[in-house]
């Protein structure tokens, strides 16, 4: 029975549903809001610190990173909680699809739903902040390496807080400290002349992405016992 969960066709069906749920314009409530939020931060920053091109170019990369991190928190509210309430994971479990496996699909879908568009939105954001082409490239590469980790942290936190009242606010607070390593190395890559920061970001991301389905699946199972 349990092996059926690893049937690739069934996994694709699961992924298809998760994507339909999470992609902007899909059924999820978050939609494009995180992106607009992300762009709004990039737009507001020059108003707050003044339009000096030198200052903006020096700090803009870091602002994009912080905005990306905060934007990644927005979709967490409905990432797991809705399906937990609806009994989706119970029904999947009875069909031999473990919570961990469901979370692998959710992680892929969550990343696909927010990272590519975030990378795309980084281009206008970089233009608004007057970043050089070289800096923009490092930010983009850093985000490419860091977003899987952000998605993984988000998934773990969303699963942990899914059964709590007011879990969404708590999810935001819990995500930030867990995402700090990604931020340090990802944004830190901007200040270095070599690519070591990017590689470290990618390494952290991979480790988090590997752990996330196990942690999130365990959290869902624990939520059942309440």
């Amino acid at each position: 029975m349990r092996e059926n969960g690893k049937n690739p066709l069934r996994f694709l069906m699961l992924l298809h549903r998760d994507l339909a749920l999470l992609l902007p314009g899909g059924r999820g409530e978050a939609g494009v809001l995180p992106l607009l939020f992300f762009l709004a931060v990039a737009m507001l920053y020059p108003f707050a610190v003044g339009p000096e091109p030198e200052l903006l170019a020096r700090t803009g990369g870091g602002v994009i990173w912080v905005a990306a991190l905060l934007a990644a928190i927005l979709p967490l509210e409905r990432l797991v909680a809705g399906d937990l309430e609806a009994g989706m994971f119970d029904q999947l479990h009875l069909r031999g699809i473990s919570e961990e496996w469901a979370m692998v699909s959710r992680l892929f879908a969550h990343w696909l739903a927010f990272a590519p568009l975030l990378l795309l939105a980084t281009l206008p954001a970089a233009a608004l902040l007057g970043l050089s082409g070289e800096t923009t490239a490092i930010v983009l590469l850093g985000l490419l390496a860091g977003t899987p980790g952000l998605a993984a942290v988000g998934l773990i936190v969303a699963a942990l807080t899914a059964s709590l009242r007011g879990g969404a606010a708590l999810a935001g607070l819990m995500t930030i400290p867990l995402a700090v390593p990604i931020l340090i190395f990802g944004a830190g890559a901007l200040a270095r002349s070599d690519t070591s920061g990017l590689w470290l970001t990618a390494a952290i991301s991979l480790a988090l992405a590997a752990v996330a389905p196990l942690a999130a699946g365990g959290a869902i199972r624990a939520a059942r016992e309440q």
Binding site: R27, A86, D90, Q91
Partner: peptide
């Protein structure tokens, strides 16, 4: 195989 029917529908509300 086991099937369970409880108060939770497990169907996407918007669909």
């Amino acid at each position: 195989r086991v099937a369970l029917l409880d108060e939770r529908l497990a169907l996407d509300e918007a669909l």
